[in-house]
């Protein structure tokens, strides 16, 4: 199978053999694809030079590949847009996004909406938008795109609107459901007023904390028990 000039974003690159790179791509029409870039680490004015600069994470590229097996051969690759320049904490956020995408995306399962969302969130991070808001928005829409979406202002079990003053818990099948008054541990309860403020676009500190816990719990269902390594980066600072 041959694919030509496919828009893609680089998720991860690792060295392979002496001069090649093994690259995980998120492509627009083919989803997650793993390719080998032969000779990409070779320097000089021959073919392959400059390729390793393009194959850095977050870089928007156009790439062509061929091959039948799971691992394709990258035959050509060129720059599509300027790479978003992520610095400092925005860079950690980018690495976090790449880690969850690498774990959640199924190989060759195309999702153009998610591709666009990912490209947009990288631009937002690079332009200095509020990092946690970018991440929460992306996480929420990622869940929807993967088919695990839920409403933030509706009780998923009874279908009633979320009430301020009530407490809710997260259920993997229904989304948010009314929590028994005392039964649930505090850490997995979400205040109705926090949820309502969040879904109305009022991002104050308690609403942000609530959204962060909620997204973390919702994603954990799909990420498995192995902890995310990129979260460790945020701990020190």
């Amino acid at each position: 199978m041959k694919v030509v000039l496919q828009p893609a974003l680089v998720l991860h690159t690792r060295a392979w053999r002496d001069t090649s790179l093994l690259v995980e791509l998120f492509t627009r029409d083919h989803g997650r694809v793993a390719v080998v870039a032969k000779g990409a680490k070779r320097s000089g004015k021959r073919s392959g030079s400059g390729m390793s600069a393009l194959l850095q994470p977050f870089t928007p590229i156009l790439c062509s590949w061929s091959g039948r097996s799971d691992l394709k051969n990258l035959t050509a690759c060129e720059s599509r847009l300027a790479a978003p320049r992520l610095v400092g904490k925005a860079l950690y956020c980018g690495l976090y996004l790449n880690e969850i995408l690498a774990r959640l995306l199924q190989p060759e399962d195309a999702n153009e909406v998610l591709f666009t969302l990912y490209e947009q969130v990288l631009q937002q991070l690079a332009q200095g938008a509020e990092l946690d808001l970018c991440l929460r928005e992306f996480e929420y829409r990622l869940l929807i795109e993967l088919g695990y979406g839920f409403e933030l202002d509706v009780d998923g079990e009874s279908g009633e609107p979320i009430q301020s003053g009530e407490h809710y818990q997260f259920h993997p099948d229904y989304g948010l459901t009314r929590a028994a008054p005392a039964g649930h541990a505090r850490a997995s309860r979400y205040g109705g007023d926090d949820l309502l403020r969040w879904s109305a676009g009022e991002f104050d500190l308690p609403a942000r904390r609530c959204a962060k816990r909620l997204m973390r719990e919702a994603l954990r269902q799909h990420l498995g028990d192995r902890p995310l390594k990129s979260r460790e980066l945020f701990h020190v600072h």
Partner: peptide
């Protein structure tokens, strides 16, 4: 180097 996808963190 730090590479969360490969499981390499600060430790």
């Amino acid at each position: 180097h730090l590479s969360p996808i490969d499981g390499i963190g600060p430790e």
